[in-house]
């Protein structure tokens, strides 16, 4: 497993550390020798196919299931360990498909979890406002939509101003506006120094938002690093989208055809060219030399999805 993070020297001290973590269920190795570090104030993505071992890692980091082998430390304390109460008071957790109690109201739900967490209930109203549920505070959870339940679950995770947040598919069921609001809160939490670990199947959603991520497959971490560093490591080709006037179409296509590029796709005044990262500047120079025949140019980096499939396959 490679950790390729140009920015790592700028990040804080490790807050979550996993060393040689294994979790076996009989012959099934759900997690198979994972080493991972999440640094203070970092928004860290954990991505993988279903069954890759993400949820099992989450549960082990939260101390919900024992490790078969290895060690996990949260803020210096071993998990599970005798100091678990202190550790859990620093941690917020939003499970995938959060299930709350239908017979409680939103406000009562936060009261209940605040009591369990041993934190003040005074900020609960502000928390409900933060997730946009003030109007529904006195309504029973059974009347909540899926998105509202998810927001209430998020408010629950924020009880006691945790220093570490585990968010498992946190935007499930949220509409686009709520997703934007959710990530705005995450940005704010990040600015306050909160360390966050997030999983999501919507890779486009997290690729611009996480500081670093780990790609898991078959119980192992295949790669860790920033999205850009992982792109560079995979050396996936770039795409140039070139828009040209109809009368210049053939000239531009012929010019591109003579360059060290991969696939060329042309249609309706658009030419899409795939090229290696090394050939990027040569292609740009060649297009610049076409004396205004190129009307517009867009360079597309490989998406996180491309990177993910590159590593996980």
């Amino acid at each position: 497993m490679a950790d390729i993070s140009p920015a790592q020297n700028d990040a804080g001290a490790p807050v979550i550390v996993a060393r040689g973590v294994h979790k076996h269920y009989g012959l099934i190795h759900a997690v198979d020798g994972v080493d991972m570090e999440v640094r203070s104030g970092e928004l860290f993505g954990l991505i993988g196919h279903n069954g890759a071992g993400k949820s099992t890692m989450f549960k082990m980091m939260l101390g919900l299931i024992p490790l078969t082998a290895g060690e996990i430390r949260i803020d210096g304390a071993p998990v599970p360990g005798s100091d678990f109460r202190a550790v859990r008071r620093k941690v917020g957790y939003l499970p995938e498909n959060v299930v709350l109690y239908d017979n409680l109201t939103g406000a009562e739900t936060l009261d209940f979890f605040a009591r369990l967490k041993g934190v003040s209930r005074a900020p609960n109203a502000a928390l409900l406002e933060r997730v946009g549920l003030t109007h529904a505070a006195r309504r029973r959870v059974r009347e909540y939509s899926k998105g509202m339940r998810q927001r209430l679950g998020f408010a629950q995770a924020l009880l006691g101003t945790p220093r570490i947040l585990f968010l498992d598919e946190p935007t499930t069921g949220l509409d686009p506006e709520a997703i934007r609001g959710f990530y705005a809160i995450l940005r704010q939490l990040k600015s306050e120094g909160v360390t966050m670990v997030i999983t999501s199947h919507i890779l486009a959603e997290i690729q611009e938002r996480v500081d670093r991520l780990a790609i898991m497959a078959a119980g192992k971490v295949q790669a860790t690093g920033t999205v850009q560093a992982l792109r560079e490591q995979m050396d996936l080709p770039l795409w140039f989208d070139v828009r040209v006037a109809p009368e210049d179409f053939e000239a531009v296509r012929n010019a591109l055809g003579s360059l060290p590029v991969g696939a060329v796709e042309a249609h309706d005044g658009h030419i899409a060219v795939q090229c290696s990262r090394d050939a990027k500047m040569a292609v740009i120079a060649a297009l610049a030399a076409l004396n205004g025949k190129v009307r517009d140019l867009t360079v597309r980096e490989p998406s996180l999805e491309d990177v993910f499939f590159g590593f996980s396959d």
Partner: peptide, 13 residues
């Protein structure tokens, strides 16, 4: 079965 046990057990309990 409902899926609420993990959340409960993630509390300091």
């Amino acid at each position: 079965e409902r899926g609420s046990l993990d959340l409960l057990l993630s509390m300091p309990i």
